[in-house]
Simulated scan of single mutants.
Amino acid sequence: MSKPAIIRKNPIVILLNFFFLEFVALGVFYIAALSADYGDIYDSLAFSKIIPYEFAEFFLIILFESCLITFVFAKWAFDTYEISPGKISIENGIFSKKHREFKMEQPVSVNCRQGLLGRLTRYGKLKILSADSATAVVLTYVPSPEKYVELLKWGGKKPSPDLENDLSAPRLLAQGEHEKLEFKTSLRWDAQANRVNKNLEKSIMKTIAAFLNSEGGYLVIGANDKGAPVGLEMDYATLGKQNADGFENHFTNLFNVAVGAEFRRFVKLTFQKLDNDGKEVCVIRVLPSSKPAYVRFDENEDFYIRTGNSTTALKPSASATYIRSWWKE
């Protein structure tokens, strides 16, 4: 599971709060001075004969400033944001802790804003709007806010390091199939039967759903089980628009029906031509989903995960246990 990201506000907030409270305090002291003479009040006190007024005034100013600095620093230290899979937590308060939680349901929209001072001192405001909420969550004074935009868009679940960047087709084909990598000869063209085979499309949707429900992975279409490229020409020939755009459009239509459009943001297609023979393959990168993804065909709805280098369907009881453990955050 992804570790939560703990965020403290940019230290600039300490200075801003200090100057604000200092300004308020000066205003209060000034108004009080207009209505009363501090010197006369102090002279009426019993210890005024022992401790000079100037010394007492200096001591009280130092004491007040020390308390003000301690309060402002403690407020900054105890105010935190926590981003974890599926939720944002906000904690604040010195003497009485307040804890608020906001659920994040995909898709998540994130807006990052930085004013002039924010750009100079590297802080900003993040406005997060989740699919399951009409009210945005606003995080202020976030240090280096651009670091958290992608994490929030993925629902607080950071992908595996090897999925953060696209990998080239030759590098993937050289690895051989494993838990996070699978090869498929074709999206829909059955070379043995010499016709379109819908079962091939179903197999690909199952594999992608399994990656979504596990730690993500790569699927290369246009290569056999050994990693030898066969190309996409036969798939292209079955489409109305016989190129990569037509392929991706057909894939998206299949995916939206079988898995769901809300999961499409986790899936990225790239088309790469191999230098050695010019054959084109489709590399599909799948990020881990923030919630369970099911595959629907006809009247059936099934749940798949990756086990080793295979795609495995779980029975309802097993899938319920897996879902509780995998998305327990």
Results as ranks from 00 to 15, higher is better:
residue 25 A to I: 10
residue 227 G to F: 06
residue 25 A to M: 10
residue 27 G to D: 07
residue 212 L to K: 05
residue 211 F to A: 05
residue 159 P to E: 10
residue 298 D to C: 09
residue 286 V to M: 00
residue 56 A to E: 05
residue 159 P to K: 08
residue 65 E to T: 12
residue 280 E to Q: 08
residue 200 L to H: 03
residue 131 A to E: 14
residue 11 P to G: 11
residue 244 A to S: 12
residue 285 R to S: 01
residue 24 V to Q: 01
residue 140 T to C: 09
residue 107 P to M: 15
residue 43 D to L: 11
residue 72 V to M: 05
residue 72 V to T: 12
residue 309 N to P: 04
residue 242 Q to M: 09
residue 261 A to F: 07
residue 128 I to G: 03
residue 221 I to P: 00
residue 298 D to N: 14
residue 153 K to F: 09
residue 222 G to R: 01
residue 245 D to P: 02
residue 150 E to M: 13
residue 303 F to W: 07
residue 112 C to A: 15
residue 79 D to M: 10
residue 278 G to L: 08
residue 232 L to A: 01
residue 115 G to P: 08
residue 293 A to K: 05
residue 64 F to P: 00
residue 196 V to L: 07
residue 324 R to T: 11
residue 18 F to T: 04
residue 315 K to N: 10
residue 5 A to K: 14
residue 148 Y to C: 09
residue 39 G to K: 13
residue 91 E to C: 08
residue 35 S to D: 03
residue 123 Y to S: 08
residue 164 E to L: 15
residue 135 T to I: 13
residue 55 F to A: 13
residue 132 D to G: 11
residue 328 K to R: 14
residue 219 L to N: 01
residue 80 T to L: 12
residue 260 G to M: 06
residue 150 E to T: 12
residue 113 R to P: 07
residue 252 T to V: 13
residue 20 F to N: 12
residue 261 A to W: 06
residue 202 K to Q: 13
residue 18 F to Y: 11
residue 230 V to I: 14
residue 26 L to D: 05
residue 51 I to N: 01
residue 316 P to N: 08
residue 224 N to E: 12
residue 294 Y to S: 08
residue 118 G to A: 10
residue 314 L to D: 04
residue 55 F to R: 11
residue 134 A to M: 04
residue 263 F to L: 06
residue 88 I to G: 00
residue 165 N to K: 14
residue 20 F to S: 09
residue 94 I to Q: 02
residue 129 L to T: 15
residue 22 E to Y: 12
residue 227 G to N: 03
residue 305 I to W: 02
residue 128 I to R: 00
residue 258 A to F: 09
residue 130 S to A: 14
residue 45 L to D: 02
residue 79 D to K: 10
residue 141 Y to S: 04
residue 165 N to E: 13
residue 291 K to V: 09
residue 194 N to I: 01
residue 227 G to R: 06
residue 99 H to N: 03
residue 135 T to A: 09
residue 99 H to T: 07
residue 216 G to D: 02
residue 77 A to G: 02
residue 43 D to Y: 08
residue 26 L to M: 11
residue 137 V to Y: 02
residue 12 I to G: 12
residue 100 R to F: 04
residue 48 S to E: 04
residue 111 N to E: 15
